[in-house]
Simulated scan of single mutants.
Amino acid sequence: MAEGLKFNDEVSHALKMAYQTPDIVSARGQVIASLKLQNGLKVLDIGSGPGLLAKDISQHIGPTGSVVGVDMADNMIESAKQLCADAVNVTFEQGDAMSLPFADNSFDSVVSTQVYEYVPDLNAALLEFARVLRPGGRGVIVDTDWAFPYWNAADVDCRDRIIHAWKQHCAQESVPMRLAGAIKSASLQLSKVEALPIMNIEYNDKNFSYWLSKIIASFAIDRNGVTNKDSEAWLAGIESLEKKGEYFFCINRYLFEVTK
């Protein structure tokens, strides 16, 4: 059973750092391009996290446009408000992707990145996405297929146990495989699907997988028989691979463009 990722201060810091790596900055640029933003649009960012995407969106919709970010985590909301303090067209509030606190047809564009892996019911969450998007509006959804990370390891058995434990962090393991059906069930039109792979061959704080490994190592402890010693050994093994020039990580994220 998925127990969920707890967004404590340590995890929140690692996520903020991960979201600022070139890997994710590039992916945000692709999200922005897919939204085809214009001046004056009203945009909803579901699962706005530390506010980086909302801030980027705000720079493409002009002073007459607006961005509303919703997130369930208090510390994420506070971080996002601090980041966007100078952006007068951005607001944040606490909200649940399963029950968005907005009227029907409220937004010209709706975006959700790395959210639907956590929801208890994917189809119901997509119905909420569709409900708040106006007819003719545009949406973008990005999610990762956590079933297939490729990660070199000094100890393959230890890695496999840790990655298996990590799968407990989400309720929906292979969201991209099921999104097309959920989009159709929500009476949205799927216009494009694009793979956004992340591949790292170096292990340092400039790469997404560096910060992801810290989050996973912490989460896995006391799950699937993983001990603190196991997590430390896994990270040490990654460091040893980096020193030998043998580090490798790859995972696929997928971007879905929809219209209503």
Rank of each mutant, 00 (worst) to 15 (best):
K6F: 10
H13Y: 11
L15K: 03
M17T: 09
Q20M: 11
I24K: 01
S26H: 11
A27M: 13
R28W: 09
Q30H: 13
V31F: 06
S34Y: 05
L35I: 07
L35Y: 06
Q38D: 10
N39S: 14
G40C: 07
V43R: 00
G51C: 05
K55N: 05
D56M: 12
D56F: 06
I57V: 15
P63E: 14
G65R: 02
V67N: 00
M72T: 12
A73Q: 10
A73S: 14
I77Q: 00
E78K: 13
Q82R: 15
C84S: 13
V88R: 11
N89D: 10
N89Q: 10
T91P: 04
T91A: 11
E93G: 13
Q94C: 12
A97S: 12
A97G: 14
D108W: 03
V110R: 01
V110Q: 01
S112F: 07
V115H: 00
Y118N: 03
P120I: 06
L122E: 01
L122M: 05
N123L: 07
A124S: 13
L126E: 01
L126S: 01
G136V: 10
G137F: 06
V140S: 02
V142C: 10
T144N: 08
T144S: 09
W146H: 15
F148C: 08
P149N: 04
A154G: 15
A154V: 08
V156A: 12
V156S: 09
C158R: 15
R159H: 11
R161E: 11
I162R: 01
H164Q: 15
A165P: 14
W166G: 00
C170L: 10
A171T: 08
E173N: 11
V175P: 09
M177D: 13
R178L: 14
A180K: 13
G181E: 12
S185I: 04
S187D: 15
S187T: 12
M199I: 12
N200I: 01
K206T: 14
F208S: 02
L212R: 03
L212M: 14
S213N: 09
K214P: 09
I216F: 05
S218K: 12
S218D: 11
D222K: 13
D222V: 06
N224E: 15
T227I: 06
T227K: 04
N228A: 15
D230Y: 07
S231L: 04
E232H: 09
A233G: 00
L235P: 01
A236I: 04
K243R: 15
K244Q: 15
E246Q: 15
F248A: 02
C250Y: 05
I251L: 10
L255V: 05
L255N: 00
V258Q: 01
V258G: 01
